[in-house]
Design a protein around this nucleic acid. Structure first.
Lengths: 340, 340
DNA sequence: CTAACAAATGTAACCGGTTACATTCAGAAG
DNA sequence: CTTCTGAATGTAACCGGTTACATTTGTTAG
């Protein structure tokens, strides 16, 4: 059942059918109805493959993600879907698992996709330019080596977010705050560390390198880093973990060693993944507006694909501190420093 | 840069170029080299859109999933990717969020996809037949209303898996075991309940309807169901939760009310999602071979697309009990029944 | 050396839409 | 009743591959 059949049935030419189907105005009302009736009666559905070839567009965009099982990424993905599906685009989702050998290059070379949204791009700017040459790209999140000036991006202000976390802990009276982060060479990792340091400074606290622990973003890593920390003589009274997974892994190790949360150590995470609320104690954490990040990134990509001008090259959305039960207020006497 | 250009450059016809590119044997070695050289030098990449139209195939398959953030689903998805990418297929992933208004019908009607793998199909057999008429489909997992005899499927034996869990608890001496499940009208939900009941019978225990709680699959639901349970006079000494999320939600509610795990109540979950290992206490649970489920389902779909015959219509993979620290052995005196 | 046949290559139709351009048509103006 | 004009419609080329079939080339046997 192709367009010629419809045309014949309706007694018009294929051009007319095509016009009606794409909503061209230059068709008489009567003709339009004839065609629509034919389409209806023949149960005609246009062939997407043919249409795509004619239009030279695939109506597909690429989304590159470290792993979808991660709540932040899956929410961003969800946000992307929300807006691109609306516009008739489909997304091809590729998980990198932090490996480099993905099938991405192929999809780009052969123009299977019209554009891409990267939730992760752990590569140098040169490598990036080489790989995505000519393809409209939007960077979502902060999983990058560098913010690439010439490429649109949307993320949160990680420095500020981390400062909020430290600020909160310091205001509870904590003077000795450890940092659990990722050694990965990403903006997010670096900025959260920077925010941590800033936060300490703002409260007149010194940065103690022996309280900074860096590994991966994983649960497992959180577990190991906390154990590492426990091996040191000096225990902090609070921890700022750069991801909820790190926090949860750390709590696991701490509990195993009989350290109580929050009685002995307070902890705040980052991401607000779903389980965090149902942990015991429920995890205080920083929430990223993940869905909006995805929506905004998709908006921007579609704007580019539509040859419109972007209002803003780099969008920063707001993060939020979610206070739950994993932190406690220090009593004055416990502080152990600056006794007036 | 199109095939004609390559043909001209190499001094052959487009047909020959096409043959070389698709590995047709009927080409002289010398010619083949000429063509390959031209392709190389002109940096030619075939146009996928054109090829797809010619071949009348999109090289895309559809995967329908309730939500990817769920660890089980994302692993299955991962398994699918593993095998289909290998064969040059891309997957279009649709999350239903248990809503009905997805864009699936469109993708199917216009043949954007060649086949589908459903991780969820909460619809009647008629509805299913209507919706996927003519499209090769494989069902992965047990998120269905009914096993559809005429449609290939791969899953685990939920009844058996649930029996294992109950068996384990009963062997630890538990006589009063509650069930937390989903009210959803899915095979998985029903079979896990059935397995629970079977397990009780096998150990000479009676099914007590007041110990069966059903809600959704979510963390939140686990939390509510556990609270509901706490309101009753009769407390079980153990709980079998039909998903880790339910278990974690329940633990949250229990802890909030001062019930200790596993001292006061033992609990075993289902799914073995990543955090389960890092909970305190670490959650004993049933593991599904999610990645393999995905791989097998993809295998089967590709077999169908390749017009081969399936070896088996319905594949069942093995589940495994992962013992951690959320259960304890009852002392003889505590059992309170059948005192000899 | 040529017939006979297989292997290699070329030609052109085809996949099913879109659209530039040509043609026809209807209504208004003269 | 023409003529003119813009709207409506049709014709056919085109998107860039694939492939049936035709043609040419090469090989072997007689």
């Amino acid at each position: 059942m192709k367009m010629r059949d419809v045309a014949k049935y309706a007694g018009v030419s294929v051009a007319t059918v095509s016009r009606v189907l794409k909503g061209d105005d230059n068709v008489r009302q009567l003709t339009k109805e004839k065609v629509l009736k034919a389409v209806e009666e023949l149960n005609y559905v246009p062939n997407t493959l043919a249409r795509n070839l004619s239009n030279m567009q695939s109506k597909k965009i690429l989304v590159v993600v470290p792993r979808v099982s991660n709540a932040v990424f899956s929410s961003i993905y969800h946000g992307i879907q929300n807006v691109v599906n609306e516009k008739g685009y489909q997304v091809i989702l590729i998980e990198t698992f932090n490996r480099r050998d993905s099938s991405v290059p192929e999809l780009i070379r052969d123009r299977t996709v019209e554009g891409a949204i990267l939730l992760s791009a752990m590569m140098s700017e040169e490598e990036f330019a080489e790989k995505f040459k000519g393809l409209p790209v939007v960077l979502a999140t902060d999983n990058l080596r560098e913010r690439i000036q010439s490429t649109p991006s949307v993320s949160i202000d990680n420095v500020l977010a981390a400062e909020k976390a430290v600020h909160y802990l310091a205001n509870l009276g904590h003077r000795c705050i450890a940092f659990l982060g990722s050694r990965s060479d990403s903006i997010g990792a670096r900025e959260r560390l920077e925010g941590y340091k800033n936060g300490l400074h703002q409260h007149g606290l010194k940065v103690d390198e022996s309280l900074i622990f860096e590994g991966e973003w994983s649960l497992e890593s959180g577990y190991h880093l906390a154990n590492q920390m426990l091996f040191q003589k000096k225990l902090p009274t609070a921890i700022f973990a750069a991801s909820d997974n790190l926090a949860i892994g750390a709590i696991s190790a701490l509990s195993e060693q009989g350290v109580r949360i929050p009685e002995d150590i307070s902890i705040v995470g980052f991401d607000n993944i779903a389980v965090s609320e149902y942990l015991t104690p429920a995890l205080t954490t920083i929430e990223q507006p993940s869905v909006q990040i995805g929506e905004k990134a998709a908006d921007m990509l579609l704007t580019i694909l539509d040859h419109q001008l972007l209002e803003q090259m780099h969008v920063e959305l707001n993060s939020k501190l979610i206070i739950r039960n994993s932190c406690r207020r220090m009593k004055y006497l416990e502080r152990g420093d600056e006794p007036k």
